[in-house]
C-alpha cells in the first residue's frame, strides 16, 4: 500500500477553447503529499493552483502526466478515488435555501453516512466553525464569511482521508480562520491528509508542514516555511520607511527591496548591529522584525518573474 496520499508526475494541463489561444495552466507539475501531511499550494493568481486541485479531485482531465491518490490512478479510475476525497471548491457556496445544519447533514447523508454519525458529525462541525448560533438560519441570510464557514464545515465533517481546500478561509475573520486551522490540525491528527491553496501566507506558515510555490504552471520551490525563509538569505528584516534613497549603502548586507520611499533589508542576525549603526548614522528610522513567509514568497516569485 502506498505511503503517499497523492503523487503527481509531470502533470500538464493545456486549456483549449474555441476562438481563444490555448492556455498552458500546468507545465509539468510533480509533487507528492504524504499521508497525514498538511501541504499548501501557493502562487500568484492564475499560477495553476485550482487547475491542479481540480485534476487531483477527479473534476478535470489532465492533458498528460499522471496523478495518483492513495495509489489509484485519478484519470483512469476516478470512481475509486472519489470515496476517499472531499473538496472545498474555490468560490463555492452552500445551497442558499438550506440552513447550515441541513447543508452539512444532507451532504454527509448523500456521501453515505448513517443518520446517527451524520447527526453527531454535523453538530461537531458546526460547533468547530462557530456556526451553532446560525445553524438554523437559511444560508441566504448569512454573511459572506458565514457562508464560507458553512462550506468548510460541510467538508471537514466528512473527515475524508484526503481533503482538498481551495482558498478555504477567504473572507473569514481572524477568529474564524484560526478555527479552520485548528480543525484542519485535528483532522490530520486523526489521520486525514490535507492539500490546500491560500493567498494568506501567515496561514500557510501556521498550518502547512510543507509548501509548494507554483508560478506559471511550474513548481518553483518546495519545502517547509522555514526552508523558504532561509532561502531569502537571512532571518531578520529591517524596515526603513525613508530609506529608499540610501539603498546602495545597504546592498552589502543582503537582499534590499525598495518600495516607494521605504526600504527593506533582509539580514543575518550577526550583521544586525552593524546595519543598525549605519541606519542611525544616516538618520533613518529602522524597525527590526522576523522575515515572514510573505517576504520569502515575494523574493522567490519576484526573482522568477525578473528572470523572464
Amino acid at each position: 500500500m502506498s505511503d503517499e496520499a497523492l503523487r503527481s508526475t509531470e502533470l500538464r494541463k493545456i486549456y483549449r477553447s474555441k476562438g481563444a489561444p490555448a492556455v498552458t495552466a500546468l507545465a509539468g507539475v510533480s509533487m507528492d503529499v504524504r499521508r497525514g501531511e498538511r501541504v499548501a499550494l501557493l502562487g500568484r493568481n492564475g499560477a495553476g493552483k485550482t487547475t491542479f486541485l481540480r485534476i487531483a479531485s477527479t473534476l478535470l482531465r489532465p492533458t498528460s502526466g499522471s496523478i495518483e491518490v492513495f495509489g489509484f490512478d485519478v484519470d483512469r479510475t476516478p470512481e475509486k478515488v472519489r470515496p476517499f476525497i472531499a473538496v472545498v471548491p474555490q468560490e463555492g457556496k452552500p445551497f442558499f435555501h438550506l440552513t447550515p445544519r441541513e447543508q452539512v447533514y444532507t451532504y454527509l447523508r448523500a456521501r453515505g453516512f448513517g443518520r446517527e454519525t451524520a447527526r453527531s458529525r454535523t453538530e461537531e462541525s458546526l460547533e468547530r466553525m462557530g456556526l451553532t448560533e446560525f445553524g438554523d438560519r437559511l444560508s441566504i441570510t448569512l454573511s459572506g464569511g458565514q457562508r464560507q464557514r458553512t462550506m468548510v464545515a460541510t467538508v471537514i465533517a466528512t473527515e475524508a482521508p484526503l481533503l482538498f481546500l481551495d482558498e478555504p478561509t477567504i473572507g473569514m475573520d481572524p477568529f474564524a480562520r484560526r478555527g479552520v486551522w485548528d480543525s484542519l490540525r485535528t483532522l490530520t491528527q486523526r489521520g486525514s491528509t490535507i492539500l490546500l491553496t491560500t493567498h494568506y501566507l501567515d496561514e500557510a506558515d501556521a498550518l502547512a508542514d510543507r509548501l509548494y510555490i507554483v508560478e506559471r504552471g511550474e513548481v518553483l520551490v518546495s519545502g517547509s516555511a522555514e526552508d523558504l525563509k532561509r532561502a531569502v538569505g537571512g532571518t531578520l528584516k529591517v524596515s526603513m520607511p525613508q530609506g529608499a534613497g540610501e539603498i546602495e549603502r545597504f546592498r552589502s548586507f543582503g537582499t534590499c527591496v525598495a518600495d516607494g520611499a521605504g526600504l527593506t533589508v533582509i539580514v543575518a542576525p550577526e550583521r544586525l548591529g552593524e546595519l543598525m549603526a549605519l541606519a542611525v548614522g544616516s538618520r533613518l528610522t529602522a524597525t527590526v522584525g522576523p522575515v515572514t513567509l510573505e517576504e520569502a514568497f515575494l523574493y522567490v516569485v519576484g526573482r522568477s518573474i525578473d528572470a523572464d
Partner: peptide, 10 residues
Amino acid sequence: HKASDLYLAS
C-alpha cells in the same frame, strides 16, 4: 454554487 464540485468529487 459549485455544488457539482462538492457533490461529484465524493
